[in-house]
């Protein structure tokens, strides 16, 4: 397949899917090898760098997805008038940060860091789909362990937890960095 038609094919697939697609999914759909897909995506990204194009290709939540260029956000917003999501409170953001960097983590461990109760905040974060129960800790009372969800990665535009901004100083006594 010509690289141009591969680029066009990838564009079509990504447009139709409207969600992050893995290279494997793209390989399955096209019948091409993973290497071909990788090269095709690189080529496509290059094509989209043209200022005549209004889309960008980004790696999000373990796959690639098409988005409108951020410069055009004001216009898209004016057109679609999306419902602005209620912003997370500072308390919710702090709790989310602790979970993101220290997951899996129990409620008690989060409260130890923040110095306040977090049960309501956890409830809010769970309702927003940003965190989820990921298991139970093998400790007295078998407390629930919390972790972040793929929706969390998407809402931050991250490909994986490894892409979280690094913490400035992690003290040696804590070996639980980003999982």
């Amino acid at each position: 397949m010509h690289s141009e038609s591969l680029t066009a094919l990838l564009e079509a697939l990504l447009f139709a899917a409207g969600r992050p697609l893995t290279t494997k999914e793209l390989a399955n759909a096209t019948g091409l090898s993973l290497e071909d897909i990788e090269m095709g995506l690189e080529e496509f990204r290059h094509t989209l760098a043209d200022p005549k194009r209004g889309l960008v290709l980004r790696e999000v939540a373990g796959g690639v997805q098409l988005f409108t260029r951020p410069e055009f956000a004001p216009y898209v917003r004016r057109l679609l008038q999306p419902v602005e999501r209620v912003r997370l409170s500072q308390a919710a953001l702090e709790t989310l940060a602790i979970i993101a960097y220290r997951q899996p983590i129990t409620r008690q461990e989060i409260e130890a860091v923040r110095g306040v109760r977090v049960d309501q905040v956890l409830f809010t974060l769970e309702e927003r789909g940003l965190i989820a129960e990921v298991g139970r800790k093998d400790a007295p009372g078998r407390p629930v362990l919390y972790g972040t969800t793929p929706a969390f990665l998407r809402s931050l535009g991250l490909s994986s937890l490894n892409d979280l901004p690094p913490l400035p100083v992690v003290r040696a006594t804590h070996d639980t960095g980003p999982a």
Binding site: L14, F15, A16, A17, G18, R19, L55, V56, R58, Q65, L66, F67, T68, P70, A73, V76, L80, R87, L88, Q90, L93, E94, L96, A97, I98, A100, Y101, V113, R114, R154, S155, L156, G157, L158, P165, L167, P168
Partner: peptide, 23 residues
């Protein structure tokens, strides 16, 4: 973590400017 929270908020803010292909 308080500082990290601010950075996460920044990322979320930026992310809101990307509208995904509709599917």
């Amino acid at each position: 973590f308080r500082d990290a929270a601010a950075r996460l908020a920044g990322l979320m803010e930026k992310e809101a400017d990307y509208f995904p292909a509709p599917g």
